[in-house]
Each structure stands twice: as C-alpha cells, then as structure tokens.
Write a protein that binds this DNA or RNA. Structure first.
Length: 493
RNA sequence: GGGCCGUUAGCUCAGUUGGCAGAGCACCUGACUUUUAAUCAGGGUGUCGCAGGUUCGAGACCUGCACGGCCUACCA
C-alpha cells in the first residue's frame, strides 16, 4: 500500500519525466538574476517615485512557496534569502513549451523568471513574467504553509526545512553571523591577531571537563578534542604575540541541556601586560559595542526582561553574593567537609565527591546564577576553583578572576594568568590529587605547557566568552540548540 | 542518570466510556483574467513510534524499548 508521500514523490518523478520529454533540463547549471526579491521591491518604489513609465527588465530567482491559479493567470510567490516576491503568469503571454512547463511546476521548485515589475490593484509588488526557467525540480513536498514546521526534532534534523518554512529562523543565524563578525572587528581594531591552534591534542587542558577521544592511525596515537583554547594561546603569549585570540569550536563530552551542546563556540583572548581589571573593561566595551552594532541598542529583550548591556556593569564579590542568595559565607568554611555540612543544612543535594572549589561552584549555579539577569560581574574567586589564575597580592586564598553573567547565563570567565611555572606545576598536581584521591589514571598534565611557562610568560590577562550564549541573549532564545544550526541529537533507528 | 509529558496522513492537529481512522493544508481532476492561507466542485491517501500483553474487539488499557521536549542532576 502506497503512502501519501510515495504517491506525491511518484507524481513528481512523473513530472520530471514529462519535463525532460519537453526537452527541458530540470537541473541547469546556472542562472544569473539581476535583483533579489528585496531589491526588486525597492525598484518598484523607485520607479513610482521617479514617475518612470517604462518598467525595468528584471530577472529574479527563488523557491516557489505558493501558487494561486485563477483561470488563465497565476500568482506565484517565490522566496530568496532576502524575502518574498510575487510573480504574475499570464497564460496568453507564454509560449507553448513554457505553458506545458508551467503546469509541471510545484511548490518547492526553484525557478528563475524574467519580466517587468508592476503593482497589482491590491498594491502587491509583482513581476509580470515574460519567460521563466526551471532551476531545480523538487521531489519532496514542503511542510504546510501556514503552521510551518513545528516538530522540534524534525526542525533540527532537517534544518533546511526549518529555514525554508519558518522565516524567523534565518534572522537568528544572521544575528549570529554579525555577532561573530563584530567581535572579530572589535579585537582586530585593538591590535589582536587571530590564530588557530590544534583541535587534536595529546593532553586536553585549560579546563576540567571530560574530553572526546580519537585516534590517529599513522601516528598510532590517541588524541583528545580540545576542551579549551587556553594553554596553546598562552604558549603564543610566551612566544611574543602580545595580543592573540581564537574564535573556535571546543568539545566537551558531558551532559546536553538547554545551556550545553557537546561542541560549542568559544572566544578566548590573551593580552600581555594586562590584568583582569583591564580585561573586564575590554569585555564590557566589547559586548556593548557588538550589541549596539548588531541590534542598534544596548537594551535587549530576553524573556520577560529587558537586559541593558551599557557599561559599567555592577560588580559583586562572590562571598557577598553567595551569602545574599544562600545565606552561606563560604569564607567561613575553609575546608570542603565543613562547607558541605553547611550546604546540607539548606536541604539541597550535595555530591560528597566534590572538592571545595566545586562546592562553591554549585552554590553559584544553584543560588546566584539564575538571579543575575542584568549584566553582572562577580569577583574574588577562591583559588581552588581557578588553577590557572594568579592569586591576589593581599589574600592568597583568592585569585584575580571574574565571571560575567546575564540573563541567568554565564557568558564570560577571565583572570590574570598565573605565570609562575613552579606554582603552576604545584596547582596542577594538587588538582589532580583532589580529583582522583585514589590515584586512578588521569590524562597527563600538559608538561609541554609547563616547559613553555618556564621560559617566562609576561603578566597577562585572559578571557573566555561563550559565543553561543551571547547569541542566545541577543536573539531572545532560551535553548542553545536554537542558536546552533545543527545541534547534537541522538541518531534515530 | 532520575521524574513528568509527547510520538496518529508529507505538514499542523482532532480522535469522547475500548466498538468502521478523521479535519485543514499539501497532492490529483475540473471551473475561474489582479490573487494574498485566493475561492468553488469532485477525488485518492495511514506500519496510529517499535515490540509484546489484556480483551470478542486496542490509536485508546498494561509492560518494555526507541526518539524528542520540559524539569532535575552532571558541567571551570
């Protein structure tokens, strides 16, 4: 028994055969259009404004999205990336072959059309078609014209259908593109150079997250996909590239959620002879400028809130903000057990495996993060949470680090980089011990990075920004999957 | 990993107390020379996510599985 889909595709294949029988190639190599839909609409207005009598000769191309046939005439909507425009086909002005070809045109086909622009009596800018060309025959039906495609699963698995039938999706990715371009422009203007460092690494450093593993056959060696950009960019600072950044994909083999995708886009920048206070200023300025450039305002709608990115952003000490939202002053509990006991009093689940740094992190995530809607900077992080950051001169329990939050999302993490190679080695060893108290095998410490550090790294300020989350804020999307074209999904079947 | 919800035509969705599988769009045929989700007349269309079970009878009830969503957990 044939399904509807089989009937439809069969019908379309028959059309394809009839088209070929007419001597028409249903998949020609190229077609040169003179205008986009948007440009054509502007041209109609121009013609009218200048009182031009002779309509210009125009050729357009796009996907057929609607066909309203009325006897001897048809109104066909085509869409290109600039928008929609209506075509007017009159049976009497088409030759025999074109007439037969027109009968085989379906919604979903790509066509090119040449003719003259005018406005219908209802005011719709329209191309009166003198001749047209089939550019690609479609063999599959499109989703419904009114409701579009709303099945979330299908939207992501067949993102092209989502882009075709849901107009607002394109806008998200236009903004994403502009955000990235604007970030590049900002950093380039400030004298940063963009670099590319290895995705395949023998040791996955710069963050504490589960990496993906892979294998190189010729070298017969296992590699990790990078979980951060940090350690290679610092090697470049050591090498004398005083201002570097990389905008690239990083990979973390951990949970998937509305805030986490296994691969995500991160910006990291490092600047020699700067500290975290300099970086803070730069971040505020960068986010505000990018926002202004892309959206034309500092005020962004996010859910029920209006987020104002205009600097300076309020700064709070981690100690105070955690105390305010949870009642716990973590500085009063210098070891993990005492802090854990205090947290258990609040009736929240606490993983007994977690060290003190991770417990503080949990306090931030549970009590603080969801409340930070307006852009906010937190400072004075404990050293246990920050193995790559320099301690504060007046308190070696804290580091020169800040994190920035907005819309309940962590958007940036930055610190004055630890450049003492001996201390860095000790911090790595301590961290390794804490994480694996039973001495289980772990990925090796990046010895090559420590060697580099021993050659002397200038005091530097480093920054990491989650680009996907920034795009979420700028596009009012609350799931990271909505701002990634092809988010990770489990394979079906 | 845990909890809740969902999966019915190509798409968007109904489906009552367990009793013939439905609508709109799309598609096909016909009418219509300025339509805008065009309109009007007619037509065909199903592995009800998958596998079991209960029952005279299951789209519906039960069990398991798959995929997805939300919450939660994990997450520098």
């Amino acid at each position: 028994m044939a399904t509807r889909l089989e009937r439809i595709t069969k019908q379309r294949q028959q059309k394809l055969e009839r088209i070929r029988a007419l001597g028409v190639n249903p998949y020609p190599a190229s077609y040169h259009r003179s205008h986009t839909a948007q440009q054509a609409i502007a041209l109609v207005q121009q013609q009218e404004a200048s009182g031009q009598k002779e309509a210009s000769d125009v050729s357009l191309a796009g996907r057929v999205r609607a066909n309203r046939a009325m006897g001897k005439i048809s109104f066909v909507d085509i869409h290109d990336s600039s928008g929609k425009i209506q075509l007017y086909f009159n049976r009497e002005s088409l030759d025999q072959t074109s007439l037969k070809l027109f009968k085989e045109i379906d919604i979903g086909d790509i066509i090119g059309a040449r003719g003259w622009l005018f406005r219908t009596k209802t005011g719709e800018p329209t191309l009166e078609v003198a001749d047209f060309t089939l550019l690609a025959k479609s063999l599959q039906p499109l989703p419904e014209k009114w409701h579009g495609l709303s099945n979330i699963d299908k939207r992501f698995r067949q993102r092209y259908l989502d882009l075709i039938s849901n107009n607002e999706i394109k806008e998200i990715f236009q903004i994403r593109s502009q955000v990235i371009a604007s970030v590049r422009h900002f950093l380039n203007q400030r004298g940063f150079i963009e670099v590319e460092t290895p995705v395949l690494q023998p040791a996955a450093g710069g963050a504490l997250a589960q990496p993906f593993t892979t294998h190189h056959h010729t070298l017969d060696q296992d590699f990790y996909l990078r979980i951060a950009l940090e350690l290679h960019l610092k090697r470049l600072i050591i090498g004398g590239l005083d201002k570097v950044y990389e905008l690239g994909r990083t990979f973390r083999n951990e949970g998937i959620s509305t805030k986490h995708n296994p691969e995500f886009t991160m910006l990291e920048s490092y600047e020699a002879y700067a500290d975290y206070r300099d970086v803070m200023k730069m971040l505020e300025e960068m986010v505000a400028k990018v926002c202004q450039q892309v959206l034309g305002t500092h005020r962004v709608k996010f859910g029920d809130e209006i987020i104002n990115f205009k600097p300076p952003w309020p700064q709070l000490s981690l100690k105070e903000v955690i105390k305010k939202h949870s009642g716990i002053d973590f500085m009063q509990f210098p070891d993990a057990d005492a802090l854990r006991a205090e947290m258990l009093k609040l009736d929240i689940e606490v993983d007994p495996q977690k060290d003190r740094g991770r417990l503080v992190d949990e306090l931030i995530a549970t009590f603080v993060e969801p409340n930070l809607i307006q852009p906010t900077i937190l400072v004075d992080y404990p050293v246990e949470m920050s193995p790559l950051a320099k301690t504060k001169a007046d308190d070696n329990r804290l580091v020169e680090r800040f994190e920035a939050f907005a819309g309940g999302l962590e958007i940036a993490n930055a610190f004055t980089e630890l450049n003492d190679p001996v201390e860095q080695r000790e911090r790595f060893l301590k961290q390794q011990k804490q994480r694996h108290p039973k001495g289980e095998p772990v990925e090796t410490i990046d010895q090559d990075f420590l060697l580099a550090l021993e050659h002397g790294m200038p005091p530097s300020g480093g920054l990491g920004v989650g680009i996907d989350r920034l795009v979420m804020l700028f596009t009012n999307q609350h799931s990271i999957r909505e701002v990634i074209l092809f988010p990770q999904l489990k394979e079906k079947d």
